[in-house]
Each structure stands twice: as structure tokens, then as C-alpha cells.
Write a protein that binds this DNA or RNA. Sequence first.
DNA 1: CAGTGGTCTAGACCACTTT
DNA 2: AAGTGGTCTAGACCACTGT
Lengths: 237, 237
Amino acid sequence: MNPKYLYVYNEVADKIENGEFSSNAKLPSEAQMMKKYGVSRDTIRKALTLLEQDGYIQKIKGKGSFVLDINTFDFPISGLTTFKELENKIGKKSRTIVKELELIHPNYFLMKQLKISKEDQVWKVVRIREIDGEKIILDKDFFRKKYVPVLTKEICQNSIYEYLEKQLDLKISFARKEIVAREATQQDKRYLDLQDYDMVIVVKNFVYLEDISLFQYTESRHRPDKFKFVDFARRKF
Amino acid sequence: MNPKYLYVYNEVADKIENGEFSSNAKLPSEAQMMKKYGVSRDTIRKALTLLEQDGYIQKIKGKGSFVLDINTFDFPISGLTTFKELENKIGKKSRTIVKELELIHPNYFLMKQLKISKEDQVWKVVRIREIDGEKIILDKDFFRKKYVPVLTKEICQNSIYEYLEKQLDLKISFARKEIVAREATQQDKRYLDLQDYDMVIVVKNFVYLEDISLFQYTESRHRPDKFKFVDFARRKF
DNA sequence: CAGTGGTCTAGACCACTTT
DNA sequence: AAGTGGTCTAGACCACTGT
């Protein structure tokens, strides 16, 4: 039983992505959409506001709502997009190799990052992402055992997120991301096809559940030439 | 005459930043805030929704709204933050050196990026950003003359954005950002203090006005060790 | 059970753009 | 003047959390 405004959001977003509403086209006015969907104006406005925030449309006072260009070609979309989602988008041959999977006690760094004590147990997962036969991304994930009691190699080979959300029913609500460049470590060089690069782009991810508990810390280490981050930002008033 | 919900948003955001509402604290309930500010529930909810989107708070059904940690120390905040704003935040000695300022006809690359014809004129501005005596960022800006008729060296030395928004009254509404790593060019090496680094982090920025016209393209080229990008992302439903 | 946030409605007035 | 989106209100019912 999804909310009505999400139904409208999804329908319009789909039409934009499919090209049924083409770039720069004017959407139906709020009044027209009220009739079409048989809902109140507020519900339509909620859907349109979301579409605007996500970069699908731009509302212009007195004129209407207009479809923005979506760069379907730019792949690593901002937000919380996971590797599994990316895979589908780029449609290239890709493979995940699980290098390490173990239950550990946190070292000082992890204790600080995850804000936990030495007694807490943490799953450590190290995976290599291969695209078109090249080992390009090194993913290190740390999950608190408190939230993820069981983890298997099979789950890690597929999407951990799917497991967390669909099986464990954990609700991820937001994340803080940090992007920096770092000198490649010995581990980077051993695990990845770094060619002549001596740096990696590091994306740190702090993932929070709905109740504000920090349950995962992730580090994604990318070969520089294969890294790309795309962001959509609205000016604050 | 600002809207009421923005008034509430700003007051609460300020209190969070000043520590009057400390981390993990529970905000007053919506009912209490209605009384306090003498506005309707919808107005309060609009303010709280904005605060949630911007990463200030987390709303939890049945419980209340809670203040999130804000990393005041992480400086390059996501969004459209400009160098001038950054300067104030980090509070370090910094300097802007204007290397080039001229009116040009676009080359093929710019024609494509800005979606303009060869006849359109474009301001080209090349600036070096120095922090703590080190030349760290190379900024290349291209503005369509159609929107920015006049540009002087003095304006470029200060904040171009302040000039555009306050003097020319151009309303910036959103931007698309792209972050990649690239081999350093001869120009990078000549203008910046790159030490031994042979790469730069390139942030490309496509800036749009309120009427969806693309009026600026910017390339910021950063020395890898001094680059940091912080993002806050909410899961899409 | 009372208190919380989430969704939805119907109606009002305003500011801006177009005809 | 007509049409558009922006703000604000008052009231309703729901789902979830705590006691």
C-alpha cells in the first residue's frame, strides 16, 4: 500500500526515463494532474517536489514544470547506489571476487569510525570488483554483528544490500560519503589491476539505519581512470 | 518577506549548528512547535522535511525528530559551495590569482558543453587558488556573455558568484557535478605546486539558472592530497 | 492508551507569466 | 484576465512507539 504521491512520482519518473516526456517538455499543470490521478493538489505537489529534488524536473513559477535532461550515459549516479545496481545500468560483464570474510574485533580505527567498543564483533568483507576482465575496485565492508548476525560467501558474491533489505529487513535511511585520493597501498597493488597508477580514489561510506544507528562502514578503492562520481545539487535558497 | 517555514528551518538549523540542540537530542514535537511559532502543522512539517533532507535531523515515526551529528570539521561540503564560502569556513590564509580573463569564441569542446553556437561569446577566466602559501586549485570558468556582459579582474579576484547573484541578480537554481581523476597537464604543472603528483582531481560543474538555461561551465583542478568531497545522501524509499 | 510522525483533503490567497 | 506554481491553514485518519 504505497502512498499516492509515490505512485505519481514513479509514473512520471518512468515516463521521463522512457522518453515519453522528452527533454525540455512541459508537464501537465498541477490542476490537470489532480484530475488525471483523482487526488488533491497537495499530493501532486509532493510528487513534483520530489521529482525536482531528484533532478528530473524544474518547476518555474507562473510557467509550469519542465523536464530536465537526464544523462543516462553518466553511470555512477550519486546517492547510495550500490555496485549491484551499477552493474545493471552499465550492462557490462562484471564479476565479484570475495577475498576475505571473517568475524573480527574492531581495531582502533574501526572503533572510532563505527563508534563501538572492543567487545563488539564486526564482519569484515573484502571484495574485488572486476569489469570487462579488469580488477578495478577494491571494496572493504565492515558490518556490526549486532545488526547482521549471519553472512555467507554466497551472499557477499551477490548483493549484500539485497540480503540486508529483503532478508533481514534492515531499513537503510541515509549515508555520509567522503571522496579523497590516496597513495595505493600494497594491498591495492596486489589485488587490483592498477597498471602504472600509484594512486587510488577512495570513497568512504558511513551507512545509517532508520533509527540513526551507524551499522556499516565501507571503503571503496577505485583505479583512478575508471572512477567517476556524478552529483546533482540544488542551490540552498 | 521570507516564508514562515524558512524562518523555522533557519532557526532550528542555527540552533543545531550552535550546539543549542546537541547531537542526538530530541526536537520538540510538531504539536509543540506549532504552538511556539504560531503556525500550522504543515508549515512545521515543511521546515522539518527540509532539515531532514539537508542532513540536520532524522524523523522517526512514533518517536520524534532527532538531531544528527554534523561534521563541522569536514570542510568541502557537498552542494554548490564556492571557493569564497570555503575560505570562510576553513579560516586559513588564502589568495586568488587571476591568470587569464578574456572574451573568446567557443571551441568545439565548449560549444558542446554549453550547447551554444560559434557566434556566441564566452568569458574565459583562469584562476589559481592558494591556501597556506601553496597553489592547490586551478579554476577554469566559462560564462556565456549573454548572461554576464561585463567581467573585471577585480570581480574575479573576489567572488564571481556574489557579483552574479547580488549585482546581476542571476538566480542559480541547480548544478550538475562530475568528479574524475586525470593526468596532470602541462598547464597544471606550470600553475600549481603539484610536488611529485602527476594527477589532478577534476571537478566539472554545469551551472543552470532558474529558467533552466545553462550559463556556466567550470573546471576545478585539485592537487590530489588536498582534495576532499563530502556528500550526504538519503536512500530513495 | 496517549503521543508521535505520515498521508491526504479542500479551500484560500499570493506572485508571477502569458495572452 | 486567465493560468501557473508557492505558501498557509484546519481538519481528518492512519501507523508506529511508548507507558
